[in-house]
Amino acid sequence: MFKFRIERAPAPMWTKPLIPIVAILVTFLITSILIILAKANPLQAYYHFLITPLSSTFSALEVLVKATPLILTGIAVTFAFTSGYFNIGAEGQLAAGAIAATWVGITFGNLSPIIAIPLMIIGGFVAGMAWALIPAILKVKLKVDEVVTTLLMNSIIVYFISWLLNGPWRDPISNWPQSPDIGSSAIFFRLIPKSRLHIGFIIALIVVVIVYFLIKKTPLGLRMRASGASKTGAEFAGINVSKTIFIAALVSGGIAGLAGVSEVAGIHYHLIDSISNELGYTGIIVATLGGLHPIGVAISALFIGLIDTGSQTVSRMLGVPVYLGNVVQSALLLVTLGMLLFQNYRIKRL
C-alpha cells in the first residue's frame, strides 16, 4: 500500500503553468451538467465554444474585439493587486474614461484625428485616475478599506451616467437614452476592413508591454511588488508603501479609463448607460486567471474573449442560453482560486 501525506510546502515549479489548464478542464466538467440540463451535447457545445469562433476570420477577429477592453481592465486590476491595493472599481473607472472620451470626442471630434485621438486617450486616462482618487486618498490617509469604497464608486457613476443620458447629454434624435455620436475624426479606425477590430487592440497590447516593463524592470515595480508581498516588510526595507500604493491605485484607474475610451471610440461611438457591462468585474477574473502577470493577463483576456464569442455561437447553434458563457467565466475564476492554493501544498509519499 502506498501512503500519502499532504504537507504545506511550495509545489514544484512545473505545476504552475498546469494550474490554468487543469482549472479549465475541471470547470468544463462541472458546467457540462448545465449543458446537459439545456438538452445539448456537452462535447458539441464545447466544440462551438472553443473551435467554431476560430474557424472563420470574422469571428476570430471578433474574439480580439471582445478581448480588447478585457486586456485593459485585466491589466488595470493587475497593476493595483500587485501592490496590494484591491481595486474593485475598474467598472466605474472604465465608465469615467468613457464619459471623458465621449466629451472629448464630441467637442474635438471634427479636428484632425492626430489631435482628437490622443486627446481622447489622455482624457480617458485622467478621468479614470480621477474616479480612482477618492478611494486611494481614503486608503492612504485614513486606512479606509478600498474594496468597499471602490465598489461604492461603481454604483455612483451608474447614476451619474443615467443623469447625463436622460438630461444634458441626451441625444434628441434617438429613442434610447444615449449621447450624440462622437465626431468622425475621433472614431478609432479599423485595423482590418470588414471586421470590428480597431486600434484599441493595439493600444491594449502597448499597455501590456509598458506595464510588464514597469512592474518587472523598474524601481517603482519593485516597490509595488514588495508592498504587495508584505507591507511591513516593505516598510522595513525603507519603501514608502503609502506613496507606492497611491500611485498604483491611480495608474490602475487610468488604465481602466482607457478601456472606456476604447469602448466608446472603437465600438459604440456614443455613451450608453450599460457602457461598463461588467467589463470591470470580468477584469478581476482575467487578472486572477492570468496570475497577475501582464503576459498571462493578455492571454487570459483572449481566452475570456473566446468564451464570450463562443457563448453566442453555442446559443445560436444549440439553443443553450447565452448566459452559459458568464457561468463558465465565473466558475473558472472560483475553480482557479481554489486550485491556486494547491500551489502551497505538495503530496508526499511516505
Partner: peptide
Amino acid sequence: HVSGLGITLLLISL
C-alpha cells in the same frame, strides 16, 4: 474580495 465577487458573478449568471 475575489471569492465573494466571483460568487456574485456566478450566482447571477447561473
